[in-house]
Nucleic acid binder design. Structure first.
Lengths: 125, 125
DNA sequence: GTTTATACTTCGAAGTCCGAAGTATTGGAG
DNA sequence: CTCCAATACTTCGGACTTCGAAGTATAAAC
């Protein structure tokens, strides 16, 4: 109890100013720190409504089980919308929700930087 | 194949315009999609040189094994610098490298949004 | 009747994470 | 002299996550 930053009972209101609060973040971050989650959000954001197969192809190397788990979670969390058409062969389309778009906007700069950064690293190697 | 840059059949030059390229991103993203990685970067960015114990405390609930693995990886990847002082009891400080700062700048908006978003979700529940 | 297309499941093996306990060091208390 | 505190980690068995090859369901096309 030496400083006013330390959180005891209610760190909620200091959250926006207390950086250590970031460490406590569950929800979105927990989801984003699972495999492919960030990339999926950005892919869907870029190429609009996408079919499952297109996502799988874009990744090249994904395990379909992991990918479908990830999609399910993102739908469940409200970042993706899943539209199913009753046709044969089946068709399913994924798109960002409004919340998903907000997320994607924050993710975009990161991925753009990552692309450049990766290119740089490779050329330096 | 008029693409002279690709080492294989890689779509390197279209990378910045081809969104599916995001899916192929390894490196940084693979690292960031491990537990606590994003939060660690931002914490260190916010509260400057930090000691191991401070990070651990800020998280509250982390397994020390996972945290130290993460720190090691981030140092190894060049986002964090680790300074060790030969004192008793031992003292180690972590800080962002220049690259780490670039990364943190891209991460910051995401975390800020996550905090707000989380608060909103909680109040809606 | 077999093939084709799609969006997933299933399941055992491999990899990652957890958390309680331990390691090494030495100045200070008893 | 012995014990404890302080710090930054390891260690290890068990739990959780991801992998990837194979399978499921459907009906139109060949």
């Amino acid at each position: 109890m030496e400083n006013s930053r330390g959180s005891e009972a209610a760190p909620d209101q200091s959250c926006r100013t207390d950086p250590s609060c970031y460490c406590q973040l569950g929800g979105v971050l927990e989801l984003l720190s699972r495999k492919h989650a960030i990339q999926v959000i950005c892919l869907v954001g870029e190429i609009g409504p996408v079919r499952y197969g297109e996502i799988e192809t874009a990744f090249g190397e994904v395990s379909s089980s992991t990918l479908s788990t990830r999609l399910e979670e993102l739908v469940e969390a409200g970042y993706l919308a899943r539209e199913q058409y009753d046709e044969i062969p089946p068709r399913v389309e994924y798109d960002l929700t409004m919340t998903g778009e907000q997320l994607q906007q924050r993710l975009q700069p990161l991925l753009e930087w990552a692309v450049i950064h990766e290119e740089f690293e490779e050329s330096a190697a």
